[in-house]
């Protein structure tokens, strides 16, 4: 694609995406729908957060990744959750979990 085609493609994609993002804020009937289905949207929000977690654990670039790396990720997650239960400090738990996973991957030579 030429530079001009890239400019047009990105501008088109940005415009379409913006409409999706902004329509519920700017169009009153959609705002009302958001209020009406608040419980449904709450469950959707929980499922999205959980889905992001399981996707990151089990998939790699769209493929199933159930090799030794998944155990390392689970170790990191368990350390973070344990740390959070113990200290109630999210940043500390985050760094402890990610740090443990990186250390485990390095030690395993993966």
């Amino acid at each position: 694609m030429t530079n001009l085609e890239w400019l047009l493609a990105t501008t088109g994609a940005a415009a379409g995406t913006y409409v999706l993002r902004a329509a519920p804020f700017l169009w009153a009937p959609l705002r009302r729908a958001g209020q009406r289905y608040v419980r449904f949207l709450t469950y959707v929000s929980f499922a999205i957060a959980a889905g992001i977690v399981s996707k990151a654990l089990t998939l790699d670039a769209g493929r199933l990744a159930l090799g030794p790396e998944i155990y390392i990720k689970l170790i990191g997650l368990a350390v973070a959750l344990g740390c959070y239960r113990w200290l109630r400090n999210i940043p500390l738990a985050l760094f402890a979990g990610a740090g443990c996973a990186v250390a485990a991957k390095w030690l395993a030579g993966l």
């Binding site: 088109g12 993002r21 959609l30 705002r31 209020q35 289905y37």
Partner: peptide
């Protein structure tokens, strides 16, 4: 290219709908 990007981004509609509250 434009269509695939917009379709992949459909989820933003639901997210914004929630945020309106």
């Amino acid at each position: 290219v434009v269509s695939v990007a917009v379709l992949v981004n459909l989820r933003f509609f639901v997210m914004s709908l929630t945020l309106t509250n």
